[in-house]
Design a protein around this nucleic acid. Structure first.
Lengths: 223, 223
DNA sequence: ATAAACAGGATTGTTGACACTTTAGTTCAC
DNA sequence: GTGAACTAAAGTGTCAACAATCCTGTTTAT
């Protein structure tokens, strides 16, 4: 190879390096096992190798990449058992998140989401518009996280999310999953709209267990 | 100041740098707000400044230190609201941990801990031997974490623990807390010994809520 | 006397060069 | 033809010097 196969040195700033890498890894633009070369990235982002190295350190701490001495860094692969470990934790934390959110804001503040998850989402699922479905789920997610007002929790859930975003995407695309998931999210939202924190928590946990079952059944398609 | 007030350059290796700093911060050998000087630490541990810098990056990711550009790093202070945020998360995760542990190992494997938490701990509490009390709690903790067999969970709980170890210590020393906590731990262990995962989980959560109440009542002594 | 301006020292941030390790490709012996 | 030994290239790990920034104590002007 004579030429740099990496993208030309677009003038990106150093501050965007870490989030950009996180994003690429989370959406599998950099798939598991992909090697990360310090030089190429330094060149592409227009920063020094030292900063790339710093970013690698942060990514390693978050469990997004794996570093082997003298051999470089590669995107971490997660095997099935790790994914199930994450699901166990996620069930608890997402449940807590919903409960805190309900306890801290007025019930009517969820009204717009209740409506969004009515007809509009119905149509989205009907027509298989998965990207829109996911975008709306994400809106619900971030609204809930914000309402919960717990930075420690937010950090952990974001960390988990970075690792499993692509897997969740693949589960949603599975036959019947969206149609089965939507009523579950609606039920959670209904409890939130009523201000019933305990019920919302339990329903959210059930929703995640249900997603987990899909993963168990279709694991060969997802991993 | 003419002389280096830091310890003489003991020959410590680079591999121990990060754990050593974590430990110092966790036990408040470096109290909140203490400034960390790259040069002093590099000298003390006999490593280059670059490595100290790497370690700082990891510590910052874990939320143990705070870095301000051009101003250096200092041990993070946690205010009361953050501590309560952590308690909310901890209650869920410790509960999960106990449940998983019970589900994965034979009930009789807890027998030695049941006995340890009988007479011996009774005596320890009676004589106010707090260090022993804490050491045994820690033994219970690590045994449970290991039995749970969930690396993601272990990571999160360890991270939380690093941040609140000293606070937990101060709560335990509070008048009446150890005497009130011991029966709670006994109850959890009894449920574990019976193989009743759900009950053990709920009891553990109650135990943490109880600890939280102490913190609420005596916050002025703890922070 | 007070506050702004200024120097000197201390500390962090950044860069580039160099050493070490691994990998891949080539040669050579059998 | 096969495999071991050697060589060159690529990549990572490390360090030390340099640049930029901040802090402290002193001077200076009002």
């Amino acid at each position: 190879m004579v030429k740099n196969r990496a993208a030309p040195p677009r003038a990106r700033s150093a501050a965007t390096l870490l989030p950009a890498l996180r994003e690429r890894i989370a959406r599998h633009a950099l798939p598991p096992g992909a090697k990360l070369l310090e030089n190429d990235l330094a060149h592409e982002f227009g920063v020094s190798r030292a900063k790339v190295r710093d970013a690698f350190g942060a990514l390693e701490q978050r469990g997004l990449i794996r570093r082997i001495p003298n051999r470089g860094a590669e995107v971490a692969r997660l095997d099935l058992s790790q994914v199930f470990e994450i699901y166990a934790v996620r069930e608890m934390l997402e449940g807590l998140c919903v409960r805190l959110a309900v306890e801290r804001v007025k019930p009517q503040s969820w009204q717009d989401l209740v409506q969004l998850f009515g007809r509009p989402m119905e149509a989205i699922v009907k027509h298989g518009k998965f990207e829109d479905y996911i975008a709306n789920l994400d809106r619900l997610r971030s609204r809930t996280l914000e309402a919960a007002g717990n930075a420690v929790l937010a950090d952990m859930l974001n960390s988990i999310n970075d690792k499993t975003r692509e897997i969740q995407r693949r589960i949603i695309i599975l036959p019947g999953r969206a149609a089965e998931g939507l009523p579950q999210h609606r039920a959670v939202l209904a409890a939130m709209r009523q201000g019933d924190a305990a019920k919302a928590e339990e329903l959210r946990r059930a929703n995640i267990r249900s997603s987990r079952e899909y993963l168990e059944r279709f694991q060969s398609f997802v991993l």
